[in-house]
Design a protein around this nucleic acid. Structure first.
Lengths: 226, 226
DNA sequence: TCTTATAGATGAACGATATTCAACTCCGAA
DNA sequence: TTCGGAGTTGAATATCGTTCATCTATAAGA
C-alpha cells in the first residue's frame, strides 16, 4: 500500500496518477457538458464518456450528480475568484475593492457563456458562491466598516443577500429580462446593501474605473488555469 | 355543446363542474405533496392519486410538472399577497408600506412550513414572486420615489434584486444558516436597496410597528382562502 | 327517453436517466 | 511470478415524467 510515497511532492504511483487524471477529466467533462446543455440536461453517461471513463466510475469520485455539479461550480468559482483577485490587485481601500469585486462578479456572471447554463440551478450556485467568496468578501466588508467607509451592519448577512441578488440578476440578464446597460446600476444598488449611498458608490466605480490590462481582463475563467 | 350556459355566473354543466373540481383538487394535492417533500421529490403519480384522478389526467390541466409547480406557487403567492394587503391596509406613506411589505414577505417566507420545501426551487419561486408582487411593489417604489421618500433608481431593478435576496434569505433561515433574530435586520438592509439608510428604515419598521389584529396576522396563506 | 358523437379520463406502456453491483482488470508488494 | 484487493466497468435496476390508444360519461338531437 505504500510503494511510492504519496506524501505531497513525491512521485505518485500509477494508480494515484490515474485517479488524479480521472477526477480532473471528470470535472472538466462535467464542466463542458453542463455549460453546454445546462446542469439538468447533462447526463452522467455523456459526462463519463467524455472523460473516457465507465459510467459507474463517476460514482467512485462523486456521491451523486448534484455532488458533481457542486464540484464543477467550485472549480468555475475558483476562476471567478482569480479574476476578482487580479481586478482588485494593487488597491488598498476596502470599499473600492468591494465595489470592484461586485462589478467583476456581475460582469462575469452575465457575460461568460459558461455561467449562462449553470445559473439555472440558482440555489446551488448561490450556495457555492456564498461559501467560496465568503471569507474574502466578509473580511472586506469588515475592514471597510472598521475604517468607517461602509456601515454594513452584519457583513455576513450583507454578503448573503448580495450573493442571491447577484445570481438572480445574472439569471435575469441571461433571459433578457433586464437591459445589460443596467449592470453598473446594479452594482451601485448592491453597494447600498453595504451601506453606501448611490453617489458615493458611483464615484467609487466610475472615477478611475479600473481599466485592466487586456491580459488580465481576458484571463480565462476556470479549469484552464491552475 | 351548449346545454347549460357556460357564461360566467350561470349554472355550469357537470363536465364544467368536474373540470373545475379536478383543477382545484390537483393544485391542492400538488401543494400538499410539494410542501411535504419538496417539489423535486413530489411525484406526479402521488399528486394524481391524492387528487383522485388518473395519472394521465394531470396533463389535461398542466403541460408539465414544472407548469404544475408554477401554478402551485402562484396560488401560494396569492396567499402572501393577501397577507401583505391586510398588513398594509390603512397606511398611506408608500415608503412605510414598502417596509411593511418587505417585513411581511420575509416573515412569511421563513415561518410558513409550506414555503420551506418550495423555496428549494429558488429560481422558480423568485420568478413567480417577482411577477406576482411586481406591479404592486414597483408602483409602491415609484410612488415613494416621487414623494422623495425613497430614491430607488430603477424600481424594477430594485425589486428584482430584492426578490432574489428575500428568497435566498428564506433559504438560509430554513437551513438554519442564519439566526432568525436578523430578520428585521434583513428588512432594513433590503430597504437600503431602495435607497433608505439604516436609521430611517429602522424607524419605519420599529416605531409604530404595525401590531396587526390577530385575525389579520393569523390569516391563512393560500388555498384555504378564496 | 333513447341514441350517439365526442370531450375528457384513464392507466398501462414508453423512454430517459440516475444509480447500483457483480464481475473483471490490473497494479504493486512479496 | 504470484496474488490480494483497490479501482473500473457497463449491463441491469429503479424511478419517474410523459404519451397515447382505449374507454366513459355527458349532452344534444330525435
Amino acid at each position: 500500500m505504500k510503494h511510492e510515497e504519496t506524501v505531497s511532492g513525491v512521485k505518485e504511483g500509477r494508480v494515484a496518477r490515474r485517479q488524479r487524471r480521472n477526477r480532473e477529466a471528470l470535472i472538466r467533462a462535467a464542466s463542458d457538458v453542463m455549460s453546454e446543455k445546462g446542469i439538468d440536461a447533462a447526463t452522467m453517461l455523456e459526462i463519463a464518456d467524455r472523460a473516457d471513463v465507465g459510467a459507474g466510475t463517476v460514482y467512485n469520485y462523486f456521491r451523486s450528480k448534484d455532488d458533481l455539479a457542486i464540484a464543477v461550480l467550485e472549480e468555475v468559482m475558483q476562476g471567478l475568484a482569480l479574476r476578482v483577485e487580479s481586478a482588485t490587485a494593487g488597491y488598498e481601500d476596502a470599499a473600492r475593492i468591494y465595489a470592484i469585486t461586485l462589478m467583476t462578479m456581475l460582469e462575469t456572471a452575465t457575460s461568460d457563456p459558461r455561467w449562462q447554463q449553470l445559473l439555472n440551478r440558482s440555489g446551488i450556485v448561490a450556495d457555492v458562491m456564498f461559501r467560496r467568496m465568503g471569507p474574502f468578501t466578509i473580511d472586506l466588508l469588515s475592514r471597510a466598516k472598521a475604517s468607517g467607509r461602509l456601515q454594513a451592519g452584519d457583513p455576513e448577512l450583507t454578503w448573503r443577500l448580495s450573493t442571491h441578488a447577484i445570481v438572480g440578476f445574472g439569471l435575469a440578464v441571461i433571459r433578457k429580462e433586464v437591459a445589460p446597460v443596467s449592470l453598473p446600476t446594479a452594482a451601485i444598488r448592491l453597494m447600498s446593501l453595504a451601506g453606501l449611498d448611490a453617489s458615493e458608490a458611483e464615484s467609487l466605480l466610475s472615477k478611475p474605473r479600473p481599466t485592466l490590462p487586456p491580459e488580465v481582463a481576458l484571463q480565462p475563467l476556470s479549469l484552464d488555469e491552475q
